[in-house]
Nucleic acid binder design. Structure first.
Lengths: 340, 340
DNA sequence: CCTCGTGCTGGGAACGTTTCCCCATTTCTA
DNA sequence: TAGAAATGGGGAAACGTTCCCAGCACGAGG
């Protein structure tokens, strides 16, 4: 689309018999141009198939019209929803989305920062756990690079963000199990480097405490938000004596793994074991039985975060911390415990 | 990372006491620079935290260092693997990946082309079904924009591509069912706008014909590669009298849906119904029983396609059509039919 | 009739690199 | 030893756009 020498602004200017400057004004919808001139320029643009050269615009305006999306190998459905929401908002804007997945293991903050620096971005969208990384945010601020945060769990008031209330959501999920009659409830935590894992545990414990239930440490297992890690954690929980009658997994992938682990032990879900997930990702409807889960509006969150970012880029004052509502979706993986 | 006036090449030149031209040579690893000068420049670069301005480079070299990835709302796991492979190859290169999902419904070829044109890309990676779109490829060629194709099924010899043999793979899957003793085999096709859907059907029919089995049209249902569409198609197939003893779904999402539909009818998989999927996506291991499926090396394919694209961008001659091997993974969703 | 604002337009200088062309010095070849 | 070739370096133009500033017409008010 570019090699066979594209039309430049002076070609258009020559054809429309105006100056390059005027063409620029027309392209950017600036005032001080007569209607007649405007239409003449538009015709010339169409005839020459003129498209402004983004690199040149970027050079003089010191803008690259690129927005980065930083995330760390979460579940596929999460990534896709994130991208969908961000792109949806970008539709019709001249900004483009550059994906920047980072490996927590190999890449340290400095490397991420170097990556961002060399990528020449105008702004970044930070998904967890980058959205909770204080050092990263400080660097960004010092570097003058605008950012917005998705699902931060701490350090609020630190730039625009969109989140849901992980604590309240986890509390609600646990209360659902308690109200069904469960007393011995296992928890599978997510990746400890995600602050959401702690927030969700706190919510769970609040519900249990309120109901007068003490959560034995043996009932808390840690995973990494992946199916395989969830499988291992669920196996450990189900090997306890007595095993829990319900398991609260901190995302759907690990909840699905819990169902698989239960099947291995010959347990039926939900008769022998209730399972609750988190996120309402695709996987929650694909497994059997479909998962009771917390709906987290990831796509909306990404959309809103991108919206706030665009506002900042337009020079408007920075937005604050936004909360989006969650929702407990009761499907078929939870039931009262078997009476024994 | 950019607003507080970054160091420019002349700052570095001044500090290292050489000309801007020399700095440029060092940055680009060109010859004609003494070691001593080179280290002096490197030191200055580090001290000033100099990073070349991509926009300026792009302007003079007429390169944007952006590569687009065009795909059309396929399953999340497919997208993620695609991106993973492409990014893996891009690691260490200066090119960045811009994601360009397109809606087949709303966007027609011209809009896609306009999108690419305005995105100022250096090259594009085409995933299905864009990789089979003749008009799109013609436009790209005329516009001088290099491209590489992922999983094309027709119009080969039309630019570098990486694919697997859909026909042979589908044939192998069908032969597996036949060898188990199945004779009444249902097929759930994928989105008709993907040429792979036809190729996989052809392979299936080849296997059946070879075994002397005629495939009744009533046994062929169409889906859209999504779980929901697969659910509806599977329900229709299972409502037949007699129902098929095995169903071959053209991707894993629809195969998972088939298992769900079977459960609705009170059928057990694989005792009452064998199910075969396609792709070996995450979902195939998450459902119960785990799916017998064809492993499609999506990540490798994206990696190789990106590799070929980079070769073209370096001015080397265009590669041809590459084939990657598939593999039939026999898991627990297939078994001999119940004797009746 | 002169002046003064106001709306439209153009000239020229940036923006930060690379590249073309040039010169001086060193090294190799015959 | 002379000439050719290679090496190390610099000056200035170019890439395509936007932005600052000035100029020009036109109508209104004195």
């Amino acid at each position: 689309m570019s090699r066979p020498k594209r039309a430049t602004i002076v070609d258009v200017a020559r054809m429309a018999e105006v100056s390059a400057k005027t063409v620029s004004r027309v392209v950017n919808n600036e005032p001080h141009v007569t209607e007649a001139v405007k239409t003449r320029v538009h015709e010339a643009m169409r005839a020459l198939r003129y498209h402004p050269n983004v690199a040149a615009q970027g050079l003089v305006r010191s803008r690259s019209y690129l927005i980065g999306l930083v995330y760390e190998k979460p579940s596929p459905s999460y990534v896709v929803e994130l991208q969908k929401g961000a792109l949806e908002r970008l539709h019709g804007e001249r900004f483009r989305l550059v994906v920047l997945p980072v490996e927590s293991v190999t890449e340290r903050e400095e490397e991420i920062i170097a990556l961002l620096r060399s990528a020449a971005l105008d702004a970044v969208l930070l998904a967890p756990p980058a959205s909770d990384n204080a050092a990263l945010m400080r660097e960004l601020r010092e570097g003058g690079m605008p950012f917005a945060r998705i699902s931060p769990t701490r350090l609020l008031g630190n730039g625009p963000s969109v989140a849901m209330d992980d604590v309240a959501a986890a509390q609600e999920a646990a209360e659902h199990l308690i109200s069904l009659g469960h007393r011995r409830i296992g928890v599978i935590k997510g990746d400890p480097s995600h602050a959401a894992a702690d927030a969700r545990l706190v919510g769970t414990m609040q519900a249990l405490t309120k109901a007068g239930i003490t959560l034995h440490p043996e009932l808390i297992e840690s995973g990494l938000f992946t199916f395989d890690s969830g499988l291992a954690a669920a196996r450990r929980l189900l090997a306890l004596n007595p095993p829990p009658t319900a398991i609260l997994a901190q995302n759907d992938d690990m909840a699905a793994a819990t169902i698989a682990a239960a099947r291995e032990c010959g347990l039926h879900v939900p008769e022998d074991l209730s399972v609750v997930g988190f996120d309402d990702s695709d996987i929650s409807r694909v497994v059997w039985p479909p998962l009771t889960t917390i709906r987290q509006p990831v796509e909306d969150m990404a959309y809103r975060a991108m919206d706030m970012l665009l506002h900042v880029l337009k020079g408007e004052p920075e937005g604050g911390d936004i909360h989006l509502a969650h929702e407990l979706l009761i499907r078929r993986s939870t039931a009262p415990p078997r009476a024994n």
